[in-house]
Computed example of a mutant assay.
Amino acid sequence: MSFSESPVFIVGWPRSGTTLLAKMLAAHPGMACGPESHLFSKISQGTIQQALTSDDWVSSIAETVGGITLSGQGVLELYGHTASSFRDELSVRKPSMPEVLSALYSNLMTRTGAVRIVEKTPNHICHLDRIRSRFPKSRIIRITRDPRDAVFSMRKLPWMPDDIVAGSLLWDRWFRSSKDFFENDPLSMTVRYEDLATNCKVVLEEICEFIGENFDPCMESFYESSDTVFTPGESWKEDVSQPIDASRIYSWKKNEVDKEDLSLVSGICHKGIRYFEYEPSLVEPLPSFEALDSLSLASATVLARGLIENRCGFQIDINELSGRKLRTLKHNLMGFLRLISNIFSKRNSLVMFHSSK
């Protein structure tokens, strides 16, 4: 089997150990992992299909992949390619996503001598069915972390809103969207960050057995290997260049955190907390915000915070929602009203929309 046919995909939530796990697997002499490729999250299904079936598929794919950027740098550049060299790699291959991934990784595989691709893009957790359809023999690993730690840590990310509700909604969305896949897909597994940090060798041995590789001691000393899994512009990932700091586990219990924020995370993410067998929260669970999934995270946060903070009634400024987002909300109005009914159950409530326009 070609290494391009059976890569290992690592997915998960921001600040949940995806980079750490990628670095550990990349320390294995037979595996290599580069920066996040975003081949599925930044390229739509229709776009990739059109490019692969184009008469000049090489140029179409080179242009499509060449448009992906990560922290201000082009993905081709991060993988040591120019547009020309990437086209050359594609030209000797067949039009398929395994061959596109193989071409992207070609320089890294040559440099490291590895024979197995590890691809780590956390938000590929939202594109699992597409990955499975394009890579039917691949192994997919989801790494999770107690959301009460992960969501607070998300505030360190420059692209995340500094709003605990936004982080909680994102965590809950990704949990719900991936739950069925990992329950039913036989070539996938889930790892808890806390188990990896406290029982590293045992968990890595389990992962190696799952992906069909022999455990190598170099995986435990991952911090001694070169940094190929993140870019110079991703300073928040630099801690994987150090040994595991087990004191970071369950920081929400040890550090002084805002109690109201902690209640929000616990209330919104309560199903995932229970599902992954983390310590139960004493906070009353909030109703599911699934009805807001069709909205952008920013718009859903506006609505969710209004619902949470004003239990006796709230108003939404429509000016904060774009026309397209507002139409989407109206399209999903019945689900939205059910959400309101759940949150305001046994209360007299008023929902008011207003606009200054």
Rank of each mutant, 00 (worst) to 15 (best):
K346H: 13
T301S: 11
L90C: 07
R139L: 02
W13K: 01
F344V: 10
R134N: 14
E205H: 03
Q50K: 14
T121V: 09
P122L: 12
I318T: 13
K156Q: 15
R139S: 14
G72D: 07
E89S: 11
W236Q: 14
S322P: 02
D258M: 05
S221V: 09
W57D: 07
D227F: 01
L303E: 04
P217G: 10
F175Q: 06
P158F: 05
S4Y: 01
L337N: 11
I316K: 00
M334L: 13
N319G: 03
P287G: 03
V8P: 00
Q315M: 11
S299K: 05
I68C: 11
M1Y: 07
E234S: 12
A51N: 08
F215V: 05
L307Y: 00
G233Y: 11
E238S: 15
E220H: 00
E213M: 15
L282C: 08
S235Q: 14
K357M: 08
K94V: 07
L196V: 07
D88M: 08
S225Q: 14
E205I: 01
N255M: 14
G323H: 10
L90Y: 08
F276R: 04
S138T: 03
C33K: 09
E194R: 05
G34A: 08
C269E: 05
T228L: 13
E119K: 02
V8H: 01
T228S: 15
E279D: 15
R134H: 14
R274F: 05
S241R: 14
S96Q: 02
S226M: 07
S177E: 14
H354E: 11
T112G: 06
C312M: 13
D162L: 12
L128F: 04
K271G: 01
A246D: 13
N310W: 02
V203W: 07
R87D: 08
K259F: 00
S235P: 00
D245W: 13
W159T: 09
D172E: 15
P35H: 10
G46N: 14
M352W: 12
T112L: 10
N184T: 14
E213S: 12
P14N: 03
C126P: 01
R324N: 12
S2M: 06
D55H: 09
S178F: 03
I249H: 06
R192D: 06
L339Q: 07
T190Q: 10
L329E: 09
R176A: 10
V257T: 13
F9H: 02
L101K: 00
C33E: 10
T328A: 10
S177T: 11
S221N: 13
V229G: 03
C218K: 15
T112N: 07
M1N: 07
D293H: 12
A150P: 00
N214M: 08
I131M: 08
S85F: 04
M154R: 11
F40S: 03
I143T: 03
E260G: 03
P136D: 02
R305H: 09
D129W: 02
S106Y: 07
L20M: 11
S345A: 15
E320Q: 15
E277L: 09
S60V: 05
D261N: 15
D293I: 03
S221L: 10
E5M: 00
F353E: 06
A83V: 09
L297D: 03
L128I: 04
P29L: 08
E63W: 10
S251C: 12
L78T: 10
S341E: 15
